[in-house]
C-alpha cells in the first residue's frame, strides 16, 4: 500500500505542476455536458437525465487518457523501477 500511496502522491504532484495534461479534458467534459443541456433544454427532463449524461461524458473524456495509459511511465523508464 505504501507504493500505491507514493505513486498517488507523485501523480497528484505532477498533475498540479503540469496542468495542461488534464485541463483540456476538464474543458471538454464541461462543454460535453453543456451541449446536452443546450440540446435538451435546462429543465426537469435534463435534471432527470443528468446522472446518465455525466457518466457518458466521463466515459468519453476518459478515452483521451486511455491512449496514454502507462505510456508516460514506460517512456520515462518508471515501470522498470517498480519492484
Amino acid at each position: 500500500m505504501k507504493v500505491f500511496y507514493a505513486c498517488l502522491r507523485n501523480d497528484m504532484r505532477v498533475m498540479l505542476r503540469c496542468r495542461s495534461t488534464w485541463i483540456h479534458s476538464l474543458i471538454f467534459f464541461i462543454i460535453f455536458i453543456s451541449l446536452f443541456g443546450i440540446a435538451l433544454g435546462f429543465d426537469s427532463h435534463f435534471v432527470k437525465l443528468s446522472p446518465a449524461i455525466i457518466w457518458i461524458a466521463f466515459l468519453v473524456t476518459s478515452l483521451f487518457g486511455i491512449e496514454a495509459f502507462f505510456a508516460t511511465e514506460r517512456e520515462e523508464g518508471m515501470l522498470e523501477q517498480v519492484r
Binding site: N10, R13, V14, R17, E76, G77, E80, Q81
Partner: peptide, 11 residues
C-alpha cells in the same frame, strides 16, 4: 538502472 532514468521531469 537502464538507459532511461525513471525520473519525473516535473519533480
Amino acid at each position: 538502472l537502464g538507459h532511461k532514468n525513471g525520473l519525473k521531469m516535473a519533480l
